[in-house]
Nucleic acid binder design. Structure first.
Length: 749
DNA sequence: GCAAGGTC
């Protein structure tokens, strides 16, 4: 009989595949590690009957390190960390696992790697091979490829064994070597330089290490960039037309289809146009179904974001509680990138299990009656299903944060498999002369998933009945003013979304990187959960920026990722990418070393600012300080600061196209690095992009004109109305435009 | 005393 050793990435998977391959009949015995058992069974391997031992590691078993002679920070030339030899060795806590492998390998002819089918999994597989081959060089090594732990997937995998992909292994080796060399070199340089210049500060802060990491810095960079965006925000005034109408005792605000304009004169002219004909025609009344979609099945990023925004826990806390719930069997594996349930998965029993709850039991019963209907996303890590409850619990069984996280997982799961919320929206379109307005009403018909998903709200918005073509005479038309507001500071949920989007870290490490830069005092958390950079964080980012190195931007990591992908795709080899990347960082390092005073100068600048009270104090417990404000003193945030009463017709100074354009260019230059990841890209930001505020009308027009078919024509008109502008000529559009083509084209001749 | 990646 063939003797085969199967090794999985974690005990959970070893146990899972054992059960599936043995139909539940397997022996279990202890290994050297308490957490990693050995399961034994008989099955077919490589077309032969085989006795199989199935065991596991716990993630990476080995770590990369410099030799001991590099340990002295004072005597070792830092730059030599770029070419000093490194060695891979079994990590301290993993010795017993390695020993199990050594012992088991001797007894077997074949080794099959069952680690997760992702990049790190392939590399962990190579570590397992190294340890096993050391004790049994004759081992024939195979790789099982599986997309989920189900009977069909596991049986298919065992019938179709392949070999390890050494390119993927190389890519991960390349990544870890670069992370170590770069991290160690820049950490020593920063730490030694800043500590020598500011001994008092770092001693008083008990701040021993000022670390650099390829994930730490971009994470810090996001926080700093948002902070600076707020600090440098130049509020701009805008104006809009508003029509108020009262019917059946309900006041309806008809909003302007143009939304808002940044030129008071234009608004005045358009206001005048409306005043010429003080009647409003109801052009269209449309009722249409509107729904709110239930959430996607929950992956790790969703859990972290929800835990942070709805439960007000840090991502790190959420994950550690979720891991506890997982290890006690309450919920499924919490580190998953999968947001869709596998096709064959039996969800109904999981829903039924919740029927005994006195909080959501009735909802669960209803779901079972109507049919389980999960809303699936399109991401899959091909190893773990979305996060879902495994056992029923109530407030007696769990408490504190464990209960809160469990409740979130259950409510999210039930919401996901139930039904969308549905309602009916009414849109009333109004026209006064050439200007168009609209008002919306909403009638919620069925709250659907929101019955159980208490984290979201959706409510009726009453609107009285309007009839198409009716004419309104009694209404109030006015000009409302407002000021653009800076965006908010990042929340932890925002930060995780950015990291996810730009590929900084993995779903399993986002929370750790954030925690690390908190621990290093690069950022702090305000009372309301918003993240603020500390003076050290600001100084580090600025210091490198001043030298001209984008160390805190996500691009560097993205560039490395491209190299790694090339290795996986066999377009380049490991040596090639390693040489290139080391060379690149070595150049930056040499220059940083010669200009390292930029760092201390930058820190000095922020120390001055802090002592003059111009900088919020964060870190080291002191999370004081309000949010930064724009120079003109941004008042309340959120909704635009709106003027209540009708405004006088005071003429704002006219801004020429040239001056607007100049300002825009300044903005583009200083904010170039932000353009990719701020503003409207994030669903929760309601504010306009910076660009919008500074666009010239001509630019708006250009865009609109090109987009319209037939293209709009610019025509000249003359201001007819009494006033300072009477007789002045302006350019406007020749054709009416509908609401989807928001033309703001207006320009003085 | 340095990183990031696994996982318990």
């Amino acid at each position: 009989m063939l003797r085969a050793l199967f090794v999985a990435e974690k005990n959970d998977v070893a146990k899972g595949i054992s059960g599936l391959l043995a139909n539940g009949h397997f022996n279990r015995r202890e290994g050297r590690s308490k957490f990693n058992k050995i399961y034994e069974l008989q099955t077919q391997v490589l077309g032969r009957n085989a006795v199989v031992s199935i065991t596991s590691v716990s993630g990476h078993m080995m770590e990369l390190a410099f030799h001991a002679d590099m340990a002295n920070w004072q005597t070792v030339r830092i730059a030599s960390l770029f070419d000093a030899p490194v060695q891979q060795k079994v990590a301290d806590g993993m010795k017993d696992i390695a020993r199990t492998l050594t012992e088991e390998a001797k007894k077997n002819d074949v080794l099959v790697i069952w680690t997760d089918c992702d990049r790190e999994g392939e590399n962990i597989g190579a570590e397992i091979v190294k340890v096993c081959k050391e004790s049994n060089p004759r081992l024939d090594v195979f790789r099982a490829k599986f997309s989920e732990i189900t009977a069909s997937a596991v049986h298919r995998a065992v019938r179709n064994l392949v070999r390890l992909d050494n390119n993927i292994v190389d890519a991960v080796d390349c990544r870890s070597e670069l992370d170590l060399r770069i991290g160690a070199a820049f950490t020593r340089l920063q730490t030694l330089h800043l500590r020598s210049k500011f001994r008092d500060i770092f001693e008083s802060q008990n701040q021993k290490v000022i670390s650099y990491g390829s994930c730490q810095f971009p994470t810090l960079g996001f926080v700093v960039d948002r902070y600076k965006m707020i600090e440098n925000f130049k509020p701009e005034n805008f104006w809009r037309l508003l029509v108020e109408h009262v019917r059946n005792g309900i006041k309806v605000d008809f909003l302007w289809d143009r939304n808002r304009l940044f030129d008071r004169d234009v608004v005045n002219v358009l206001y005048d146009n409306c005043q010429e004909k003080l009647e409003a025609i109801v052009e269209k009344v449309v009722k249409k179904p509107k729904s709110r979609w239930r959430p996607y099945a929950m992956d790790t990023v969703a859990l972290e974001k929800l835990g942070s925004s709805k439960l007000k826990m840090s991502a790190k806390e959420v994950m550690s509680v979720a891991e506890k719930l997982y290890s006690k069997g309450w919920i499924s594996y919490p580190r998953t990138e999968t947001n869709k349930f596998p096709k064959g998965m039996e969800l109904a029993p999981l829903v039924e299990m919740q029927a005994e709850s006195n909080e959501w039991g009735n909802f669960a019963k209803e779901v079972v009656e109507r049919g389980v209907n999960p809303r699936n996303g399109n991401k899959s890590d091909e190893a773990h299903p979305p996060i879902h409850p495994l056992k029923f619990a109530d407030r007696q069984t769990l408490n504190g944060n464990e209960w809160r996280v469990y409740e979130l997982v259950v409510r999210h799961f039930l919401a996901c498999v139930s039904r969308d919320a549905s309602g009916e929206e009414t849109v009333v379109n109004l026209r006064i002369n050439s200007e168009r307005f609209h008002a919306n009403g909403l009638c919620v018909k069925d709250l659907g998933y929101m019955h159980v998903y208490v984290y979201e709200k959706w409510g009726d918005k009453q609107i009285p009945t309007y009839v198409e073509n009716e004419i309104l005479k009694e209404f109030n038309l006015r000009i409302v003013d407002g000021t653009t507001q800076p965006p908010d500071l990042l929340t932890e949920a925002d930060l995780i979304a950015l990291m996810d989007k730009f590929g900084i870290g993995t779903d399993a490490t986002h929370a750790e990187h954030i925690e690390k830069i908190k621990e290093r005092d690069y950022i702090g958390v305000k009372g309301d959960g918003k993240l603020l950079p500390s003076f050290i964080g600001l100084a580090l980012v600025d210091g490198y920026d001043d030298m001209g190195f984008a160390m805190s931007k996500p691009d560097l990591r993205a560039n490395l990722e491209r190299g790694l992908k090339d290795i996986c795709d066999r377009n380049r080899n490991k040596r090639d990418v390693l040489t290139e990347q080391i060379g690149k960082y070595r150049t930056i390092f040499d220059e940083t070393e010669s200009k390292v005073f930029f760092l201390s100068k930058s820190l000095e600048k922020y120390l001055d600012k802090r002592s003059s009270g111009n900088l919020p104090d964060v870190g080291n417990g002191g999370h004081g300080g309000g949010p930064p404000r724009g120079p003109d003193g941004g008042g309340g945030r959120g909704a635009p600061r709106g003027g209540g009463a009708d405004r006088g017709r005071g003429r704002g100074g006219r801004k020429t196209t040239a001056s607007r354009r100049g300002r825009k260019n300044d903005m583009a230059a200083s904010g170039a690095n932000m353009s990719n990841y701020n503003g409207e890209d994030e669903a929760e930001t309601r504010r306009p992009r910076e660009r919008k505020n500074t666009r010239t009308l001509a630019e708006d027009a250009e865009e609109v004109m090109c987009a319209c078919n037939p293209p709009l024509q610019a025509v000249q008109k003359t201001v007819q109305k009494e006033g300072p502008n009477k007789g002045k000529r302006f350019w406007t559009c020749s054709l009416p435009f509908n609401s989807s083509e928001k033309c703001s084209f207006f320009q003085w001749v």
